[in-house]
Write a protein that binds this DNA or RNA. Structure first.
Length: 260
DNA sequence: CGAACTGTTTAAAC
DNA sequence: CGTTTAAACAGTTC
């Protein structure tokens, strides 16, 4: 369940249900899943007897603070990761996130002293857990992005606008589905060289990012956009056939008639 | 059966 | 330095 809206849903569940509960045991069976030198013994040492005190988010990265100010845990959901607290699923999955319950897909988690637990289920294993994540690697959060921040991210970039918007180092949180929806709403072609987007268009783009995130969040997730991700369905705005191209290495749907 | 999929990281090439 | 491309991860879906 990637995309920032689903990550925010997971964060809210962690905030509501996983804080201030003493951690009794750590489940970290998967070496591949632990990134940047993080190991199971290190996680145990950092977390057993400790408790989460805050669940924050920057882009798609969830950061759990603990009672020990030196211990923070970064949790990433990848493409198919899902948060479960006390065996209940947090938030709706996107299409390719499996609903099956397989214990072997629990790549990381903690058992609380009260008997409950928080588990990260990730069939495809593309998520991650790490101690003390470097939050400075990420750009400003997409959900609170200001015009000045967007303007700065775009400045001087010769890459396609879609690549810039998806670069987590420049803006944190926008993924493939959301960027296509945003650009479709803003009327900007995904392959457009970023710095050629003029100030008026940047205003429109900024508004589209904010509106899209707010609207799709209210509707229930990143898959509730207005632009069909299919070639058989014409553009709802002007009836033109949509195009499917590869932009920034990702499959991209867009309308060649109203996106320039 | 084959291809594609919401993500990130790393490497290599230009 | 910036940008692009490919590979890797593993399961589901069309």
């Amino acid at each position: 369940m990637p995309e920032i809206l689903e990550v925010e849903t997971a964060r809210r569940v962690l905030e509501a249900r996983a804080l201030n509960r003493e951690i009794a045991r750590v489940h970290a069976p998967d070496t591949w899943f632990m990134k940047r030198g993080t190991t199971a013994p290190a996680l145990r040492h950092a977390l057993v007897g400790n408790a989460f005190t805050a669940a924050r988010r920057r882009g798609k990265q969830i950061v759990l603070d603990t009672e020990n100010p030196d211990v923070r845990v970064g949790v990433h959901l990848g493409m198919s990761g899902r948060v479960l607290v006390d065996d209940e699923e947090a938030g709706d999955p996107l299409v390719y996130a499996s609903n099956r319950r397989m214990v072997k897909w629990h790549r990381f988690g903690v058992h609380f002293a009260d008997g409950g637990d928080f588990m990260l289920r990730d069939p495809r294993r593309l998520g991650a857990v790490e101690l003390d994540p470097d939050e400075s690697r990420l750009g400003p959060d997409a959900m609170t992005l200001t015009f000045a921040q967007l303007d700065h991210a775009i400045a001087k970039r010769t890459a396609p606008i879609k690549a810039v918007l998806m670069d987590q180092h420049r803006i944190a949180g926008l993924g493939n589905l959301l960027v296509d929806e945003v650009l479709w709403r803003a009327g900007i072609a995904p392959g457009r060289v970023a710095f050629t987007i003029d100030p008026a268009e940047r205003k429109v783009l900024h508004k589209a990012i904010r509106t899209t995130l707010r609207t799709l969040d209210r509707r229930g997730g990143s898959h509730t956009g207005d632009m069909p991700r299919a070639l058989e369905v014409p553009c709802p705005r002007d009836g033109a056939p949509l195009r499917r191209d590869k932009v920034a290495g990702r499959t991209t749907y867009w309308c060649p008639v109203h996106q320039h």
